[in-house]
Design a protein around this nucleic acid. Sequence first.
DNA 1: CGGGCTTACTTACACGTGTAAGTAAGCCCG
DNA 2: CGGGCTTACTTACACGTGTAAGTAAGCCCG
Lengths: 325, 325
Amino acid sequence: MEKGQQRITSSDVAQASGVSRATVSYVLNNDPRQSIPEETRKRVIREAEKLGYRPFTPARILRAGHSQIVLAVLPFEQVDPGLALGLKELEARLVEHGFTLISYVGVQQLATKIHPSANVTPGVIVSYGDETDPAIASFLQQFQVPILPGMNNQGMQQLVGKTQVDYLLRHSQRQIVFAAPERQDVQFLVQARLKGVLQGCSEHGLEPAPVFVVPASRPAARTAIREFLTHQPSPYGICCYNDEVAFAVLAALIDEGISIPATAAVIGCDDIPLAQFSIPALTTMYFDRQQSLDPLVENIMAASRGEPTRQVPPASLKLIVRDSA
Amino acid sequence: MEKGQQRITSSDVAQASGVSRATVSYVLNNDPRQSIPEETRKRVIREAEKLGYRPFTPARILRAGHSQIVLAVLPFEQVDPGLALGLKELEARLVEHGFTLISYVGVQQLATKIHPSANVTPGVIVSYGDETDPAIASFLQQFQVPILPGMNNQGMQQLVGKTQVDYLLRHSQRQIVFAAPERQDVQFLVQARLKGVLQGCSEHGLEPAPVFVVPASRPAARTAIREFLTHQPSPYGICCYNDEVAFAVLAALIDEGISIPATAAVIGCDDIPLAQFSIPALTTMYFDRQQSLDPLVENIMAASRGEPTRQVPPASLKLIVRDSA
DNA sequence: CGGGCTTACTTACACGTGTAAGTAAGCCCG
DNA sequence: CGGGCTTACTTACACGTGTAAGTAAGCCCG
């Protein structure tokens, strides 16, 4: 099976349809500069299908000098569900244009000599990492292809923080707290988020919100939150970095017997599928990336042609009100 | 910038080091059949680094006829956290051997003419889908490369089901219930899991467990579980397809005021990061894929060379006891 | 009725690799 | 001292594409 199976090339199709390889290529690529009678066209297409011909991508890329592959670089340990959904939508759009989206998730080996993605040849890179990080920048540059910013940049994070504060203070005055995760990989986003929270506090004439770093284990989270809240005046309004942090905060509060949302109101971010099943059900928000998707796709197409790109308008934020705030 | 930047090829390195392109290739690929003096070797390597030369992968693939790319095909709408972790580990191993792991997540477009992954050229495919599904099989075969089964096959699912039942019945007699998700993409795994649960029931001399399909929204889940449980004798032992289903079940039970684990014991699968933060904390299990990782990597390497592959031993199952069962 | 134009192709090249086959110089050894 | 062997390379080819340039036949039109 390994010896016998030869790759089917355009030469095979050419031979089968009694024309040259060039004609096959012109037909299958629909070259408008050639005049090829319908009869020949049909014959070539039929033979190509009969033989199950599929052009060999590496040869195509070699010839063209660039690929139709888009590499999304996600320098996080894991990809948040909201982002995963956005990538899925992006992929669907790109497919329509004949492009393939590949994701690289991970941050550890960015500086390694032999990188995990060394074998892929993207035509465009979409970067979701910290744009100001020189390590990431130099890693991306070695691909020698255009680099575009992805959709969850720092500006968007800031908007979330401000919106969370606005919502928590809508009905009553509360001590705002920012709950941050321990994980290091998203700290550049955490910082941007905090900036938004602080901006919200300042606009409401409040002192800057203190930061509560949520421990990764449940017992630790419980003792930490008890310790932390004794130094703050109740009622509390807790802005969580994302829904996962919010789950940890909710569990810690419940373990401590603190009533939600009366004494402590909790708001998350992302609206992960599990968000509706927390106790109590989580109030959260998510980005509607729909309207920023088209411009991003446009930019990717433009960049792959070597054309300049435009500014992508920010996604709009949707609030999901449930029981936790 | 687009015009000016030329690709750096081995010709450039050859010219800079005053040798032929062949010599450059022999040096950089460490061809043991050539005798090249250390001096020349050093010079070539130095020039290659100075110029920032990186071999152009498509040309390599074209020459070799096959790539070092491993494509993991995951025919699910989303990838479970446990599986994501396993893939991350697999990637790390493959990198050591110079291979690149690419994942394709998604099931909708499998049958589409122009497939999302049309632009990538894997050397080996690792399939996590239903091995008996002809649509998946024909899709995979068109890549014309060896296909290996991934790590979450039906046999492993069955083991989970049986282990869940064993645990739930360890201390007291309970009415076993199987909680399945609505999502269609994992039904082949759901069925395998159910088979394991039923096997467990039969071994304990019980009637076959009824199946509770958990609705996707919290209010619907609540009414559905009330309706469902009135026809069953308590106490219940609920085997959940995964931790996400378990979260929905826990919320529905709490909304109904049913005590956990006294009246209803709940056990999940995957041990997702959030599992410890459910109310009450979720008892669950996960696969320790560590010892099946090496054989899988071995198989991938063998398959890419066209050699036969061996049977991969099943991963071992680890129980995480918390408060829900 | 012949020169130019259209039609319907084909021939030839280049993209960047890896490697088999060739080669020139130097050395060894009977 | 010359034939064979080693060293240190180079020359040449093939992988499968896409497309510019070439070409032969047919047609039109002054």
